[in-house]
């Protein structure tokens, strides 16, 4: 999409995944990163650190995605998560009411503990188990789970109202079909405030080639130049 040859400013964004076990957190990420879905996926242990670059019209964002590593049990990774995360994906399973309660708990924790300006997206996953999956529409009219095959237990309206009250992005997704998955990440990328991507030179920084984001980062894997003898004091 980027036709101009000039490199766009690139920034890393730490995105954390939160939510009850088995709501499909890792599946969402796998769909996004690898466009892949695994049926009956094992609980996440040994999960990779995933990264995915996204090109926006004016900048490139590299998501560094922190999965829960299957440690929901003691919530002991949480302090690591809150610190310096710029975005959070709080996932619930829209066929499981307790998972929304848990999601609300995480949202409250994030609002209490995380950096100011964190972008939080509330995501109801497993849309494929509901009747509105085929149409791909987020609107389910009067569906009370009566019709066959509709396992939905949390109405779009309920979650959406909550998300609006709390100022969260809101999506219903299916990691299985891929429905709405990339949209979630696009919305997050667009919602990250420009200021949090810029360098300290930020306000009033002059040129278009802002030395922001990743250009400050030291690459430990880059070509190691042998230190020239006597070159430095």
């Amino acid at each position: 999409m980027a036709d101009s040859n000039a490199p766009k400013p690139s920034s890393s964004v730490k995105l954390v995944l939160l939510g009850e076990a088995a709501v499909g957190k890792s599946s969402l990420v796998l769909r996004f990163v690898n466009n892949d879905f695994q049926e009956n996926k094992e609980p996440t242990i040994g999960a990779a650190f995933l990264t995915q670059k996204c090109n926006l019209p004016t900048r490139t964002i590299k998501f560094e995605i922190w999965d829960t590593a299957g440690q929901e049990r003691f919530a002991s990774l949480a302090p690591m998560y809150y610190r310096n995360a710029q975005a959070a994906l709080v996932v619930y399973d829209l066929t499981k009411p307790t998972s929304l309660i848990k999601a609300k708990h995480w949202v409250a924790e994030l609002q209490r503990q995380a950096s100011p300006g964190i972008v939080i997206a509330l995501v109801g996953n497993k849309l494929d188990l509901t009747n509105d999956s085929e149409s791909g529409q987020a609107e389910s009219e009067g569906a009370d789970g009566e019709e066959s095959g509709d396992a939905r237990k949390i109405s779009t309206e309920e979650a959406k109202t909550y998300a609006e009250e709390e100022g969260l992005l809101f999506f219903e997704t299916s990691a299985k079909t891929g429905h709405n998955v990339s949209e979630v990440f696009t919305a997050i990328a667009n919602a990250i405030p420009e200021t949090s991507l810029k360098s300290t030179r930020g306000p009033g920084a002059s040129s278009a080639v802002n030395r922001g984001g990743d250009e400050q980062r030291v690459n430990l894997n880059g070509p190691r130049e042998a230190a020239k003898e006597g070159c430095a004091c």
Partner: peptide, 15 residues
């Protein structure tokens, strides 16, 4: 080794 799924960003999402 890198765990599965981590690697260089050969594919980039154009949003």
């Amino acid at each position: 080794q890198d765990r599965e799924g981590v690697g260089d960003d050969d594919d980039v999402y154009d949003l």
